[in-house]
């Protein structure tokens, strides 16, 4: 008994220490994000000063309006939205089917298919971009969103299949089996039993797919040559080079670029931490 009392005591002490260090870690990890947001609300004279001002007061929206009114901002937001929307929708539909196959069926070639799904994600983007660029050029798909969409599918889709597979595995097959005993067809059971149960998984997966597609840089940078066709990440990356460094508007632009991702996460916060690991690891 004494032993377990000691252990509990030790555990409480541990928790206090862990909490304290945890808060320090949190502060350090989030500082860059805080500094971005704080800077974006500061007037120019509070940005360009040697002693940093830790809190934006007075605050202003000038940096945001400057960023938004830069050339091609609205075009590029629209492009990003189109690319991400199409990629996520296609990946979810196609990926769900494949996830069903590897989670619910044993079939010849299943292992080979899994190897392909996982192996494809190992190919370096810098290696793929050379042939993809040249071949898209031949197919007249350079500088078009369709070329980028097809390219993004090659890394978002395998990820989607694998993550959804994890979620499908989490649903006991007995539920579908029961429906089939009651006269449902197999696909009826998938549609009526599995699909509604998997909705949280679909939401989580679509968010990860969204983040991947929204954040991608190198393919869009190479494939989309003209400025009005580029995506928001490329727009942001060329922000400094185009006009010298204008930190206030740059931080406002950076804040705006990460905004959609943050909003999506805020909406489904609870699922996220679990979902992040659902696809990668289930041991």
């Amino acid at each position: 008994m004494r032993g377990s009392f000691d252990v509990r005591n030790r555990r409480n002490r541990q928790r206090l220490v862990a909490n304290a260090i945890g808060l320090v870690v949190l502060a350090v990890m989030l500082f860059p994000v805080y500094w971005m947001i704080a800077t974006s609300f500061k007037p120019g004279r509070d940005i360009l000063r040697f002693d940093p001002k830790w809190w934006p007061s007075p605050w202003t929206l000038d940096n945001f309006s400057d960023a938004i009114h830069r050339p091609y901002f609205t075009d590029n937001v629209k492009n990003s939205a189109i690319v991400v929307g199409v990629v996520v929708a296609l990946s979810l539909v196609i990926g769900f089917l494949a996830a069903l196959a590897i989670a619910r069926f044993r079939f010849y070639g299943r292992r080979a298919f899994i190897v392909v799904i996982i192996g494809v994600q190992m190919i370096p983007a810098t290696a793929l971009i050379i042939p993809l660029y040249v071949l898209l050029a031949r197919a007249n798909q350079v500088d078009r969103l369709s070329g980028v969409i097809v390219t993004y599918l090659t890394f978002v889709l395998p990820f989607t299949v694998w993550t959804l597979r994890g979620f499908v595995m989490g649903i006991p097959p007995e539920l579908e089996e029961a429906a089939m005993v009651d006269g449902c067809t197999r696909f009826g059971a998938f549609l009526r039993i599995l699909l509604p149960l998997i909705v949280p998984g679909l939401v989580a997966t679509s968010i990860f797919a969204f983040v991947q597609a929204w954040n991608e840089f190198i393919f869009a940078y190479v494939i989309l040559a003209s400025q009005e066709n580029q995506t928001l990440t490329v727009w942001l990356a060329s922000f400094t080079t185009s006009r010298g460094t204008d930190w206030g508007p740059l931080m406002a632009a950076a804040t705006l670029t990460s905004l959609p991702v943050v909003i999506f996460f805020a909406l489904v916060q609870r699922r996220v931490a679990f979902g992040l690991t659902a696809g990668a690891v289930r041991g």
Partner: peptide
Amino acid sequence: GLVWVWATPVTVAIAV
């Protein structure tokens, strides 16, 4: 906090 950092686009991180 960790998920927030994870979701930050790399181009944003670089700018910051």
